[in-house]
């Protein structure tokens, strides 16, 4: 039989099926990405009008048009800063142990498996843990501290996993160079390995924090308040955060409060964008140091 490279009936049919399949896949992707656009568009349509200086600087109110979100912004920033302060050192230390010391020991593998599973535990379960452990057993009450501790536990797996990735990218030649100069293991880690991993660690931290700042359920569970007429002024203050305030407004029947919720969502999304921008700037600046 001679080789024929021209189209025949069956190959044309298969080609059509292939193209059709590709078209369907593209449409599906377009719909998913389109949904994101519609989501942002809807929120913008509903909330842009409410978004003004008064809204950003006012406390909540029974009347939708004079209610603001100042307390929730301060609350969110307060909680997230404290979360970072707790999750970063513990997470980096844990990752350093697993990556640099733990090796392939059975215990290290067990800890790894445990972290992977923790990363997939629903956030509301962390809320129940925070309620039982921090709010009650450790008697922190429904405070900023209890909220941040809960979110820190939630953020920990992400910080650990991304720090390990970052440590793995540090070339072994750097470790050897340091050891060859008579550095101890910890000196090598502290002076050479961790500084080189900083961009990756920071990126992971911000990723974890931007997830934490959008968390609602665990903070509701530990009893963060939904109505609070003041901003937190210490780690023992009662508090609320942006997503809880948004949830509170969404749950009201009046349409005017729904618009407040949309405006609150815009603030939250802006905060998330800012955090990611900070991550990119930090990473760039750090990478430029020590490079040509």
């Amino acid at each position: 039989m001679a080789v024929s490279l021209g189209p025949n009936a069956s190959s044309a049919g298969r080609r059509r099926a292939d193209l059709l399949f590709q078209a369907v896949a593209l449409v599906v992707l377009a719909v998913a990405l389109g949904a994101l656009a519609v989501l942002v568009g809807t929120v913008w349509r509903d909330g842009a009008n409410r978004l003004d200086w008064q809204f950003l600087t006012s406390f909540p109110s029974r009347r939708a048009e004079s209610a603001g979100i100042y307390h929730a912004i301060v609350g969110s920033l307060y909680v997230i800063a404290l979360t970072a302060a707790m999750a970063l050192p513990v997470g980096v230390a844990a990752a350093t142990y697993l990556e640099e010391y733990g090796g392939r020991s059975r215990l290290a593998r067990f800890i790894e498996l445990n972290i992977a599973n923790l990363a997939a535990v629903p956030s509301i379960i962390y809320g129940l843990l925070g309620l039982g452990l921090f709010v009650r057993t450790m008697a922190m009450g429904r405070s900023v501290l209890a909220g941040a501790a809960t979110l820190a536990l939630l953020a920990l797996p992400v910080v650990i996993l991304s720090t390990r990735e970052a440590l793995r990218t540090v070339p072994s030649s750097i470790r050897e160079g340091s050891y060859a100069l008579g550095a101890t293991k910890w000196q090598t880690i502290w002076h050479q390995v961790l500084p080189m991993a900083v961009p990756g660690i920071l990126t992971g931290l911000i990723l974890a924090l931007s997830r934490a700042i959008g968390e609602t359920a665990p903070l509701i569970t530990i009893g963060a308040l939904t109505y609070i007429p003041f901003a937190p002024d210490s780690i023992w203050s009662a508090f609320t955060v942006l997503p809880i305030q948004i949830f509170n407004w969404v749950s009201r029947p009046q349409a005017a409060f729904k618009d407040n919720a949309a405006a609150g969502i815009l603030v939250l999304l802006a905060l998330l964008l800012t955090m990611n921008a900070i991550a990119i700037v930090l990473r760039d600046r750090y990478q430029r140091k020590g490079r040509p």
Partner: peptide, 22 residues
Amino acid sequence: EALLFLCALASVGTTAGIIVVL
């Protein structure tokens, strides 16, 4: 090293905490 190990163990503590509290 012991301190770092304790931090790594904190994750196991979290799981244990969840189970105990629940």
